[in-house]
Structure formats: structure tokens, C-alpha cells
Design a protein around this nucleic acid. Structure first.
Lengths: 249, 249
DNA sequence: CAGTGGTCTAGACCACCTC
DNA sequence: AGGTGGTCTAGACCACTGA
């Protein structure tokens, strides 16, 4: 490895600065699972030596990756691969808050899980062939004793081979935590589209509200390294006592 | 001015690094309107000289402020105070997208605007005394010929003294653009809470949908420098042909 | 051309963690 | 004490802009 970085690129149309090349190299190592979620990566000076650049250049590369929540710095200890284990990361991908007071602990209750073949919509969204094997999961998220989110989740079976009710019931982690620990698939980004809809029978039942109740519909496509889509999800949120929280900056 | 920065702070409980002190000084200049939205600020080397630190330290301060969308760097030209004029900034505070195709140009149609006194809710949200003078605006946002958002907006009258229908009709800018150009109030951050509700008579009329239609309710508190709340807004979004777009990262 | 931000380096020292 | 990341400096050179 260790392609030596290009220091000058005058008149090059695809010029990218050294620290960005370093960033791409580190990114490649993450993608290749050289270091897994939660692991320490080599120290800045060690990486600097490995790549033949100064420590400041490595530092700038890591700065960007920390800003993108790919790495986490801890002074005195080292730099770590980000993981969905820590609760901070949990709420980056679940923007639910209680209208009043603190949010009670969440509990995920799987309803059904089955295998199917990708229709046109799912295939397009996940970048699969039509007819490719997928897994579908329905589950309800409770906060305290209240059902708040009814999710329908579509996954490519190729990436989550043995995904099933058994795996889910044996596992108390959040889904994304399990995805990265069991299948080595780490979600790093997601696009969401929010709409208001009337509860149909299935969502009304799951959320214990009357049919026709206005629900917040959240459609999500989640991506792993390389902006590869690996999850499609439709979540119905009961917003009687909760809301979707967002910060604009 | 130019309090000389403190270089060492061993055992100080409120230690903050030099670049953060510089950042606070630049922030104070922004808050004091030493440079207005869209203006160039002094060059990095000039600021370094003014504050008696190295250029790299000023650079790091500006880096953070650029990441927070307070400043905008333009290579070869200088560093500028961010403004709501550029369309990029516009969509940071209006997360609407069309379900299909491009979003047509938006048009804001004011319905009514009147003065009132703050009730308990508004007073608490905006940090005012109960009974303090406020201004209330109702307006509809159209995209193409479709009404999409019905807004009710509460502002402290002290900050927006002559705000009225006349001012609005004479002004084609976005609200936030007008706030910063006419009143010197620049919105830098906002908290939003999203819920699904059934359209009441007022919102149904404004959005030309049947009463009871599920609507996306977006409650926003917007903040200016120093995290001071200066706007409270309730927006009803018709999500038949549009949605609220959010990126999780 | 001069002036701006952008990159890269080398080295010093500080703050924090662990042993 | 020895390692890690965090701060700060000084200086060189590159890339972009506009007169």
C-alpha cells in the first residue's frame, strides 16, 4: 500500500490537497475494516510516519473525519472509530423528544420479519436489481409504556444474511449497533423525508390510536461508507405526546 | 479594546485556548455590527497583528466560525460575514422540497399583521415580560401556484419597531433577509419541533385543503447572536406534493 | 502584480490519561 | 515517566482574485 502522496498538482484538473488524500487513505482503511467500530486507530505521529507526511497534515485529515462523526478524538487516550454504541450517536439518528419532561428509556418490540424480493421502489432506493432478496422488518418503538414509532424497515438480504426474529429477540442493542457489530455495516448518514398522513389500520393498531389520526411519516434512506444505500425505512410517529426535534444551524 | 489574550491558564477552571478567545472577540465585533452581513472582515494577517497572535491562531478561530455558518471564506477575496441573501443559506432554514422534480420559485403572501401583548407562552419562549409588545404575522408561502406553508410568526416589537404589512409588501426579500438588512437582526440558529395535526379551519383555508387534512406542524424558535431567542413561529405544511427534508449525519 | 485564503512543515510546549 | 491529543508559532510556498 502506502501509495506515496502527490505533493504538487499544478494544472491538474483533479487536484486534491495532501490532507484529503490522507483522509481518503484512512477512509479506505475504515471501509476495509482494518479498525472496527470502537477501536483505537494509530496515533497521529504513527500515521504521519506511515504516510510520509507531517503530523499537522494527518491532524487536519482527522479533524475533518471527526467533524463528520467518523472518528472520535479523546485527549490523552487516542483517536477511535465512531460507533453507534454511545448514546450521543443514538439520538443523532432518532430525533424523538418528549413534549414535556425527559424521554423515558426506549424499547424496541419486533412484530414480524420476513424475506421477500425487491420491487421497483425498493430496488431503486437501495441500488439493487429488481427481484433481489431483501428482508422486511416491522417493529414498534416504545418510550416508557407508550408506543411512539411504528417502523417498516427494508434491508438487502445480501448484507444481512441471517437477519430474523431470532436474531432480534436475542439482541437488546439498537438496530444500528447490531448492524455494525453483527454484520459490519456501519450507518454514517441518512436522508429523511417527513410528511403528515392519516393513520391506516396497521399503523393505528401498532400505535394504539384511532384510524385516521394524523401521524408523522418519516421515510429514511441510510447510507454506509461510500454513500452506499443499505437501509430503507418508513416510520410512523405518534406525535400526541412526542415530537421530532431538529436543529437548524 | 484589544484586551491582551491570556496565553497560559494552568489550573484555571475557566481555561479557554487562545483561538477561542480570538473567536469570542470576532464574535463580539459581529454582535456590535462592526461589520455587517455581506461585508469583508479584515484579513487573517491583519487580525493576527491586531490581536497579537499568529496567523494560524486567527485561522483556527475563523475555521470554527465558518463551520458554524457565521463567516464565509472566499479564496483570493477575503472572509465575509454570512448573510441570508445567498440561496444556499435560504434552504438551511426552509427544509421544503418537492416530492417530484424541482421546487418552483417561492412567493410569500402576507395575510394579516397586527400588534399584541405577549401572553405567557410567547413571553417564556422569547424571553420577554408578560404583556410586552409583540408583532404577529400570518402569511402563506407558495411554491409555483400551490400554497404549501401557512405561518404564524411572533416577534418582539422592540426589535422590529415598524414591522407592518406596508413594510412587507414593499419588500420582496425573504423574511430573514429583511430582518438582517432592515433591523440588523441576524438569525443564526433555530430549534424546530415537528408534529402531525389535523387542519383546523384557518390553516385549511389558507392552504386550500379540506378541514381535518393531516398537516405537518413545525414550531420554530430562532436565535440571534448570544443564543437570544427573537422569533417564534408555527408553520403548517401541506405535505400532499411536498415534504420536509432532513439530513442526518 | 500584490493581496487574499489554502496547504504543509517542524518544533515547542500544554493538558490529559495510564502505568 | 511516557504516551496521546491540543495549542501555538514562524515561515515557506501554492491557488485564486482583481487591478
Amino acid at each position: 500500500m502506502n501509495r506515496s502522496p502527490v505533493r504538487s498538482a499544478s494544472s491538474s484538473p483533479t487536484f486534491s490537497p495532501l490532507y484529503r488524500q490522507i483522509k481518503d487513505l484512512i477512509l479506505a482503511s475504515l471501509e476495509a475494516r482494518e479498525w472496527g467500530p470502537g477501536d483505537v486507530i494509530p496515533s497521529e505521529s504513527e500515521l504521519a510516519q506511515r504516510f510520509g507526511v507531517s503530523q499537522g497534515t494527518v491532524r487536519k485529515a482527522i479533524d475533518e473525519m471527526a467533524a463528520e462523526n467518523l472518528l472520535v478524538r479523546r485527549q490523552g487516550k487516542g483517536t477511535f472509530v465512531a460507533t453507534h454504541s454511545d448514546p450521543h450517536s443514538f439520538f443523532r439518528f432518532l430525533r424523538v423528544a418528549a413534549n414535556e419532561g425527559e424521554l423515558p428509556k426506549s424499547r424496541s418490540v419486533p412484530l414480524e420479519c420476513w424475506r421477500a424480493r425487491a420491487g421497483a421502489d425498493v430496488a431503486r432506493t437501495l441500488g439493487l436489481e429488481i427481484g433481489a432478496p431483501i428482508v422486511i422488518l416491522r417493529r414498534v418503538l416504545y418510550f416508557g409504556d407508550k408506543p411512539v414509532v411504528f417502523d417498516e424497515i427494508y434491508l438487502p438480504a445480501a448484507l444481512f444474511p441471517d437477519f430474523s426474529m431470532d436474531v432480534l429477540t436475542a439482541n437488546d442493542d439498537s438496530l444500528y449497533r447490531m448492524f455494525e457489530s453483527r454484520y459490519g455495516v456501519r450507518m454514517i448518514r441518512a436522508d429523511e423525508r417527513l410528511r403528515a398522513v392519516a393513520a391506516d389500520r396497521a399503523s393505528a393498531t401498532a400505535l394504539a390510536v384511532p384510524e385516521g389520526t394524523p401521524l408523522l411519516l418519516v421515510e429514511r434512506v441510510a447510507f454506509t461508507y461510500g454513500d452506499k444505500p443499505v437501509e430503507w425505512r418508513r416510520g410512523f410517529y405518534s406525535t400526541e405526546n412526542h415530537h421530532y426535534h431538529n436543529e437548524l444551524g
